[in-house]
Design a protein around this nucleic acid. Structure first.
Lengths: 131, 131, 131, 131
DNA sequence: GTGGTCTAGACCACC
DNA sequence: GTGGTCTAGACCACT
């Protein structure tokens, strides 16, 4: 499920963080569920364990996962994601919205895009419940 | 009008791009208006001309400015900003919105943030017209 | 009364030590009172007896408890807590206070925080007496 | 000026952080002053550059220093130290104070210790000014 | 010359 | 078996 692009300019540990973050946010990895061990993931992705460790450590600093030495790393409940992480995302959202508005994109279109994303999330959640 | 933070971790050319982009988007630099020459700006900001060159080159690639050899660089009309630039911004907007929604932020709050940004832009434009 | 957080990054034996230490300091376990046996506690908390043993051993080294082979472990009177334990706490207190002062926190605020803690202890003790 | 104890159980990068933090807080490294480069310090202390990098990166996350790629790392003004860093120190202060009070140390003695630290800081500052 | 990233591989603490 | 730390050494981006 994890896709890395070695030709991407972004560091591997950043790509890895984004992959894991999305899996946790979407519910692909449930709260309290164990993530692959550092060694296991390093072996699967053919990547150095140190790179995995760095991704995990920074995910933990952001509040997305928690790590118990000797046991493994686990997905944190979404309400435990740190406030600073939220604040950064809000700032980025405002900034991007402002630029798009200045480029002539209507506020209405942006609202519709948000609604579209909200609907996608709802439908994926309800399908999860059905299962 | 250009503010660079030499203590910022972001490269100077990135900060320069953001400054120029914002000046063009806000109308501080009007469409078709000539930008400072590379040498001039390098002298004003006490920066290596190579750094200015790189910023201008990437701004041109994004469609924010166009360069006429021997005459200088000029701000492009906003409707000429490349579709790829727009697409990237839209993608980033959707992505950030989705993550915030997944974190439990309401679509309504996001809409309000957009409206707030739209109002700020309107008020700054009307004050520009007064001038 | 003992609360362990298996999601905490701190080792279980450290959490156990803090629980016991706090119970002794607060009077929840009176001086000379017998602590649960290693086996008993291991069974109650569903934890490896080795983990309990380590916590007890380190608590004894600090002077918070004493162990009589064949009879069990007992809470030591607070005045028998080892001087080295006290010294370490005092050093840590001074160190933290100094850093906060250097960061601009006023000595007055620190004094108020101490008074607040002292009040909390007094009130909990008087409620204990009522019982 | 930096003292590391390789026999200490604490990781080298933690000891290094404490050393640097104290040097910045005490003014031994002034605000905006450049810290030794990663390679330079690694060579001086006979330590792997990665270990230095980790200490620097975490110091930056706490707000004590800022790093400009290609230029070096610099001490941040004390008022830019992150609020979370401050909050953690306050929590640790309260916790330590509470335990000492429970051990029978008087609030008055703790206040005197704080005053003593405050005086030491004042005197070192005024001696700096004299110089 | 600076920091940033990544690899390969070692040893330790904890469970 | 797990994460945590550290070393040695390479290559890259930026100034």
């Amino acid at each position: 499920m994890i896709s890395l692009n070695f030709r991407d300019s972004r560091p591997i540990y950043e790509q890895l963080k984004e992959n894991l973050r999305q899996m946790i946010l979407s519910g692909a990895i449930a709260a309290e569920e164990k993530l692959p061990s550092v060694r296991e993931l390093a072996s699967d992705l053919a990547i150095n364990p140190n790179t995995i460790m760095r991704a995990y450590r920074e995910m933990e600093a952001a509040g997305f996962i928690y790590t118990i030495p000797g046991k493994g790393s686990f997905a944190a409940p979404l309400n435990e994601v740190h406030d600073e992480t939220r604040r950064k995302l809000m700032d980025q959202f405002s900034e991007t919205a402002r630029v798009l508005l200045q480029l002539g994109v209507s506020a209405q279109l942006l609202n519709e895009m948000i609604q579209k994303e909200a609907d996608r999330i709802d439908s994926s959640k309800s399908s999860d419940q059905t299962v």
